[in-house]
Protein backbone atom coordinates (compact mmCIF):
# COMPACT_ATOMS: atom_id res chain seq x y z
CA UNK A 1 0.00 0.00 0.00
CA UNK A 2 2.33 2.63 -1.30
CA UNK A 3 2.00 6.40 -1.23
CA UNK A 4 2.90 6.15 -4.90
CA UNK A 5 -0.01 4.02 -6.11
CA UNK A 6 1.66 2.90 -9.33
CA UNK A 7 4.20 0.94 -7.29
CA UNK A 8 1.37 -1.28 -6.12
CA UNK A 9 0.54 -2.07 -9.73
CA UNK A 10 4.16 -2.97 -10.42
CA UNK A 11 4.33 -5.10 -7.31
CA UNK A 12 1.15 -6.90 -8.31
CA UNK A 13 2.71 -7.73 -11.67
CA UNK A 14 5.84 -8.97 -9.96
CA UNK A 15 3.81 -11.10 -7.55
CA UNK A 16 2.21 -12.62 -10.59
CA UNK A 17 5.54 -13.17 -12.25
CA UNK A 18 7.40 -14.80 -9.35
CA UNK A 19 5.64 -17.30 -7.08
CA UNK A 20 8.45 -16.89 -4.53
CA UNK A 21 7.63 -13.23 -4.02
CA UNK A 22 5.88 -12.57 -0.71
CA UNK A 23 4.52 -9.29 0.60
CA UNK A 24 4.43 -8.26 4.26
CA UNK A 25 2.71 -5.12 5.54
CA UNK A 26 0.41 -3.97 8.31
CA UNK A 27 -2.21 -3.31 5.68
CA UNK A 28 -2.52 -5.23 2.40
CA UNK A 29 -4.86 -4.90 -0.58
CA UNK A 30 -7.73 -7.39 -0.19
CA UNK A 31 -7.61 -8.10 -3.93
CA UNK A 32 -4.02 -9.32 -3.61
CA UNK A 33 -4.94 -11.64 -0.78
CA UNK A 34 -7.69 -13.10 -2.93
CA UNK A 35 -5.48 -13.39 -5.97
CA UNK A 36 -2.22 -14.62 -4.45
CA UNK A 37 -3.39 -16.09 -1.15
CA UNK A 38 -2.81 -15.07 2.43
CA UNK A 39 0.42 -17.06 2.55
CA UNK A 40 2.07 -14.80 0.03
CA UNK A 41 0.28 -11.59 0.94
CA UNK A 42 0.61 -11.29 4.68
CA UNK A 43 -1.20 -8.76 6.76
CA UNK A 44 0.92 -8.42 9.87
CA UNK A 45 0.49 -6.95 13.31
CA UNK A 46 2.29 -3.63 13.86
CA UNK A 47 5.51 -5.55 14.33
CA UNK A 48 8.04 -4.09 11.95
CA UNK A 49 11.15 -5.62 13.57
CA UNK A 50 9.60 -9.08 13.43
CA UNK A 51 8.43 -8.51 9.87
CA UNK A 52 11.93 -7.59 8.74
CA UNK A 53 13.57 -10.40 10.70
CA UNK A 54 11.10 -12.87 9.19
CA UNK A 55 11.77 -11.42 5.76
CA UNK A 56 15.45 -12.14 6.29
CA UNK A 57 14.83 -15.75 7.28
CA UNK A 58 12.48 -16.20 4.36
CA UNK A 59 14.97 -14.62 1.97
CA UNK A 60 17.79 -16.86 3.20
CA UNK A 61 15.66 -19.93 2.61
CA UNK A 62 14.43 -19.16 -0.87
CA UNK A 63 11.62 -16.63 -0.82
CA UNK A 64 11.75 -13.08 -2.11
CA UNK A 65 10.13 -10.90 0.55
CA UNK A 66 8.98 -7.34 0.11
CA UNK A 67 8.17 -5.51 3.33
CA UNK A 68 6.29 -2.26 3.10
CA UNK A 69 7.42 -0.27 6.11
CA UNK A 70 4.97 2.50 5.23
CA UNK A 71 6.96 5.49 6.59
CA UNK A 72 10.72 5.82 6.41
CA UNK A 73 10.70 6.72 10.11
CA UNK A 74 9.72 3.12 10.84
CA UNK A 75 13.06 2.02 9.38
CA UNK A 76 14.51 3.09 12.72
CA UNK A 77 12.40 0.42 14.42
CA UNK A 78 14.01 -2.35 12.40
CA UNK A 79 17.66 -1.36 12.68
CA UNK A 80 18.85 -4.52 14.42
CA UNK A 81 17.23 -6.98 12.04
CA UNK A 82 18.14 -4.92 9.01
CA UNK A 83 21.62 -3.69 9.84
CA UNK A 84 23.09 -6.24 12.23
CA UNK A 85 21.50 -9.19 10.49
CA UNK A 86 20.13 -8.74 6.97
CA UNK A 87 22.93 -6.45 5.87
CA UNK A 88 25.60 -8.68 7.41
CA UNK A 89 24.58 -12.23 6.59
CA UNK A 90 26.19 -12.47 3.17
CA UNK A 91 29.44 -11.09 4.50
CA UNK A 92 29.30 -13.03 7.76
CA UNK A 93 28.73 -16.30 5.94
CA UNK A 94 31.47 -15.36 3.47
CA UNK A 95 29.00 -15.43 0.65
CA UNK A 96 27.25 -18.68 1.45
CA UNK A 97 23.90 -17.10 2.37
CA UNK A 98 22.03 -14.47 0.42
CA UNK A 99 19.33 -12.16 1.66
CA UNK A 100 17.47 -10.81 -1.36
CA UNK A 101 14.75 -8.71 0.25
CA UNK A 102 13.20 -5.32 -0.33
CA UNK A 103 11.96 -2.72 2.14
CA UNK A 104 9.82 0.09 0.78
CA UNK A 105 8.91 3.28 2.64
CA UNK A 106 7.77 6.85 2.12
CA UNK A 107 10.08 9.76 2.96
CA UNK A 108 8.76 13.31 3.11
CA UNK A 109 5.83 14.93 1.45
CA UNK A 110 4.26 18.18 2.52
CA UNK A 111 1.90 16.15 4.69
CA UNK A 112 2.65 17.90 7.99
CA UNK A 113 3.23 14.62 9.80
CA UNK A 114 5.71 16.29 12.10
CA UNK A 115 9.17 15.61 13.51
CA UNK A 116 8.68 11.87 13.91
CA UNK A 117 7.17 10.90 10.59
CA UNK A 118 8.55 13.37 8.06
CA UNK A 119 12.14 12.53 7.29
CA UNK A 120 14.67 11.51 4.68
CA UNK A 121 16.88 9.06 6.60
CA UNK A 122 18.58 7.44 3.60
CA UNK A 123 21.92 8.99 4.49
CA UNK A 124 21.98 6.80 7.59
CA UNK A 125 21.78 3.69 5.44
CA UNK A 126 24.71 4.81 3.31
CA UNK A 127 26.73 4.07 6.45
CA UNK A 128 25.46 0.55 7.01
CA UNK A 129 27.45 -1.59 4.58
CA UNK A 130 25.44 -4.43 3.15
CA UNK A 131 22.24 -2.59 2.29
CA UNK A 132 21.65 -0.98 -1.04
CA UNK A 133 19.78 2.28 -1.06
CA UNK A 134 17.53 3.42 -3.89
CA UNK A 135 16.00 6.91 -3.85
CA UNK A 136 14.31 7.44 -7.22
CA UNK A 137 13.62 10.95 -8.48
CA UNK A 138 10.63 10.03 -10.62
CA UNK A 139 7.72 7.62 -10.52
CA UNK A 140 9.08 5.90 -13.62
CA UNK A 141 12.45 5.29 -11.99
CA UNK A 142 10.70 4.16 -8.82
CA UNK A 143 8.92 1.45 -10.79
CA UNK A 144 12.04 0.49 -12.68
CA UNK A 145 14.12 0.24 -9.51
CA UNK A 146 11.42 -1.71 -7.71
CA UNK A 147 11.42 -4.25 -10.53
CA UNK A 148 15.21 -4.59 -10.27
CA UNK A 149 15.10 -4.83 -6.51
CA UNK A 150 12.57 -7.67 -6.46
CA UNK A 151 14.32 -9.57 -9.24
CA UNK A 152 17.99 -9.39 -8.36
CA UNK A 153 19.77 -11.78 -6.04
CA UNK A 154 22.33 -9.60 -4.36
CA UNK A 155 20.92 -8.66 -0.99
CA UNK A 156 18.71 -6.27 0.95
CA UNK A 157 17.45 -3.13 -0.78
CA UNK A 158 15.87 -0.11 0.84
CA UNK A 159 13.63 1.75 -1.59
CA UNK A 160 12.77 5.24 -0.35
CA UNK A 161 9.84 6.87 -2.09
CA UNK A 162 9.03 10.57 -1.87
CA UNK A 163 5.22 10.94 -1.79
CA UNK A 164 5.59 13.95 -4.11
CA UNK A 165 6.67 11.68 -6.99
CA UNK A 166 2.95 10.96 -7.41
CA UNK A 167 2.37 14.58 -8.48
CA UNK A 168 4.40 14.15 -11.66
CA UNK A 169 3.66 10.54 -12.43
CA UNK A 170 3.40 9.47 -16.06
CA UNK A 171 1.39 6.33 -15.38
CA UNK A 172 1.91 4.73 -18.76
CA UNK A 173 5.67 5.27 -18.75
CA UNK A 174 5.93 4.16 -15.14
CA UNK A 175 4.15 0.89 -15.78
CA UNK A 176 6.14 0.22 -18.93
CA UNK A 177 9.50 0.93 -17.25
CA UNK A 178 11.97 -1.91 -17.63
CA UNK A 179 14.16 -2.92 -14.68
CA UNK A 180 16.88 -0.33 -14.23
CA UNK A 181 20.34 -1.43 -13.09
CA UNK A 182 21.45 0.00 -9.75
CA UNK A 183 24.36 2.40 -9.74
CA UNK A 184 23.53 4.20 -12.98
CA UNK A 185 22.80 7.91 -12.65
CA UNK A 186 20.22 9.55 -14.86
CA UNK A 187 21.34 12.66 -16.71
CA UNK A 188 18.17 14.73 -16.52
CA UNK A 189 19.67 17.61 -18.49
CA UNK A 190 23.02 18.30 -20.09
CA UNK A 191 25.13 21.38 -19.63
CA UNK A 192 28.52 22.64 -18.57
CA UNK A 193 27.82 25.64 -16.32
CA UNK A 194 27.61 23.51 -13.18
CA UNK A 195 26.84 19.99 -12.05
CA UNK A 196 23.65 19.72 -10.04
CA UNK A 197 23.20 16.43 -8.21
CA UNK A 198 19.64 16.09 -6.92
CA UNK A 199 18.12 13.26 -4.89
CA UNK A 200 14.60 11.88 -4.70
CA UNK A 201 11.91 14.51 -4.23
CA UNK A 202 14.46 17.25 -4.97
CA UNK A 203 14.95 16.11 -8.56
CA UNK A 204 11.75 17.78 -9.68
CA UNK A 205 12.68 21.11 -8.07
CA UNK A 206 16.17 20.91 -9.56
CA UNK A 207 14.67 20.18 -12.98
CA UNK A 208 12.54 23.30 -12.81
CA UNK A 209 15.57 25.29 -11.68
CA UNK A 210 17.52 23.90 -14.64
CA UNK A 211 14.78 24.98 -17.04
CA UNK A 212 14.67 28.44 -15.56
CA UNK A 213 18.44 28.86 -15.76
CA UNK A 214 18.50 27.53 -19.32
CA UNK A 215 16.06 30.26 -20.32
CA UNK A 216 18.76 32.71 -19.17
CA UNK A 217 21.44 30.83 -21.09
CA UNK A 218 22.93 29.04 -18.07
CA UNK A 219 22.96 25.33 -18.85
CA UNK A 220 23.55 23.13 -15.87
CA UNK A 221 24.09 19.41 -15.94
CA UNK A 222 21.49 17.76 -13.72
CA UNK A 223 22.26 14.28 -12.47
CA UNK A 224 19.89 12.07 -10.48
CA UNK A 225 21.96 9.25 -8.93
CA UNK A 226 18.79 7.12 -8.50
CA UNK A 227 20.68 4.80 -6.17
CA UNK A 228 22.93 6.12 -3.40
CA UNK A 229 24.38 2.67 -2.74
CA UNK A 230 25.79 1.79 -5.18
CA UNK A 231 26.57 5.33 -6.30
CA UNK A 232 27.44 6.14 -9.91
CA UNK A 233 30.61 7.92 -8.87
CA UNK A 234 32.20 7.76 -12.35
CA UNK A 235 29.31 9.67 -13.91
CA UNK A 236 29.19 12.25 -11.12
CA UNK A 237 32.97 12.74 -11.14
CA UNK A 238 33.17 13.05 -14.93
CA UNK A 239 30.55 15.76 -14.86
CA UNK A 240 32.19 17.68 -12.04
CA UNK A 241 35.60 17.47 -13.72
CA UNK A 242 34.02 19.06 -16.77
CA UNK A 243 31.93 21.78 -15.09
CA UNK A 244 34.12 22.61 -12.08
CA UNK A 245 31.05 23.46 -10.02
CA UNK A 246 28.86 21.30 -7.83
CA UNK A 247 25.47 21.88 -6.25
CA UNK A 248 24.08 19.07 -4.09
CA UNK A 249 20.31 19.17 -3.68
CA UNK A 250 18.32 17.12 -1.22
CA UNK A 251 15.22 17.38 0.98
CA UNK A 252 17.15 15.62 3.73
CA UNK A 253 19.88 17.11 5.92
CA UNK A 254 23.26 17.99 4.44
CA UNK A 255 24.96 15.58 6.84
CA UNK A 256 23.15 12.70 5.18
CA UNK A 257 23.43 11.82 1.51
CA UNK A 258 24.93 15.14 0.29
CA UNK A 259 27.91 15.02 2.66
CA UNK A 260 28.62 11.44 1.77
CA UNK A 261 28.38 12.03 -1.97
CA UNK A 262 30.70 15.00 -1.65
CA UNK A 263 33.23 13.01 0.38
CA UNK A 264 33.22 10.26 -2.24
CA UNK A 265 33.66 12.78 -5.05
CA UNK A 266 36.55 14.58 -3.35
CA UNK A 267 38.37 11.26 -3.25
CA UNK A 268 38.37 11.03 -7.03
CA UNK A 269 41.68 12.34 -8.39
CA UNK A 270 41.30 15.81 -9.85
CA UNK A 271 37.86 16.57 -8.44
CA UNK A 272 38.99 18.65 -5.47
CA UNK A 273 41.17 20.71 -7.76
CA UNK A 274 38.50 21.05 -10.42
CA UNK A 275 35.98 22.26 -7.86
CA UNK A 276 38.34 24.65 -6.14
CA UNK A 277 35.77 25.43 -3.48
CA UNK A 278 32.90 25.93 -5.91
CA UNK A 279 30.55 23.72 -3.96
CA UNK A 280 27.06 24.58 -2.74
CA UNK A 281 24.41 22.70 -0.81
CA UNK A 282 20.66 23.06 -0.97
CA UNK A 283 19.36 20.84 1.78
CA UNK A 284 17.26 20.69 4.92
CA UNK A 285 18.57 22.18 8.17
CA UNK A 286 20.12 19.83 10.73
CA UNK A 287 17.02 19.80 12.89
CA UNK A 288 13.90 17.62 12.79
CA UNK A 289 11.10 18.54 10.39
CA UNK A 290 8.46 20.65 12.17
CA UNK A 291 4.73 20.33 11.57
CA UNK A 292 3.72 23.88 10.75
CA UNK A 293 4.01 24.49 6.99
CA UNK A 294 5.47 27.92 7.71
CA UNK A 295 8.28 26.37 9.74
CA UNK A 296 8.73 23.58 7.24
CA UNK A 297 9.03 25.87 4.21
CA UNK A 298 12.80 26.27 4.58
CA UNK A 299 13.24 22.49 4.61
CA UNK A 300 12.38 22.13 0.95
CA UNK A 301 14.87 22.31 -1.88
CA UNK A 302 12.88 24.79 -3.95
CA UNK A 303 13.78 25.80 -7.53
CA UNK A 304 14.53 29.29 -6.17
CA UNK A 305 17.12 27.96 -3.75
CA UNK A 306 18.72 25.85 -6.47
CA UNK A 307 18.92 28.71 -8.99
CA UNK A 308 20.35 30.97 -6.30
CA UNK A 309 23.04 28.40 -5.49
CA UNK A 310 23.97 27.98 -9.15
CA UNK A 311 24.11 31.74 -9.69
CA UNK A 312 26.33 32.11 -6.66
CA UNK A 313 28.78 29.54 -8.02
CA UNK A 314 28.75 30.81 -11.58
CA UNK A 315 29.22 34.41 -10.43
CA UNK A 316 32.20 33.33 -8.34
CA UNK A 317 33.94 32.07 -11.48
Amino acid sequence: MNELAVLDLVLEQELDRNPDLVFLATSTPPSWRTRFGAERVRTCPISEPAMVGAALGAAMTGLRPVVDLNRASFAFLVMDQLVNHAARIHYLSDGSYRAPMVLTSATRGPQQLGPQNEQCPYGVFMQTPGVRVAVPGSATDACALLRTAVRDEQGPVLLFIAPGLADHCDLRAALAAEPQPFGVAHRVREGDAATVVAIGSAVHAATRAGDELAAEGVHVELLDPRTLVPLDLPALAASVLRTGRLVLVDDGPRSGAPAQILAALLDVPGVALALGGRIAHVSAPEVPVPSSPVLEAQYWATPERVTAAVRRLTAAA
Binding site: I46, S73, F74, G114, P115, Q116, N117, S291
Partner: peptide, 22 residues
Protein backbone atom coordinates in the same frame (compact mmCIF):
# COMPACT_ATOMS: atom_id res chain seq x y z
CA UNK B 1 3.72 24.72 15.72
CA UNK B 2 6.36 22.00 15.77
CA UNK B 3 4.15 19.14 16.93
CA UNK B 4 0.65 19.58 15.44
CA UNK B 5 -1.30 16.68 16.98
CA UNK B 6 1.72 15.07 18.63
CA UNK B 7 1.66 17.40 21.63
CA UNK B 8 3.50 17.48 24.92
CA UNK B 9 2.37 19.68 27.81
CA UNK B 10 4.38 19.84 31.04
CA UNK B 11 1.63 21.90 32.71
CA UNK B 12 -0.65 18.87 32.73
CA UNK B 13 2.13 16.26 32.85
CA UNK B 14 1.35 15.13 29.33
CA UNK B 15 4.77 13.78 28.39
CA UNK B 16 4.27 12.73 24.84
CA UNK B 17 1.76 11.92 22.11
CA UNK B 18 3.75 9.59 19.91
CA UNK B 19 3.12 9.08 16.22
CA UNK B 20 4.84 5.70 16.41
CA UNK B 21 2.49 2.92 17.49
CA UNK B 22 3.52 1.44 20.86
Amino acid sequence: GKAAALVSDPATHLLLSSGIVG
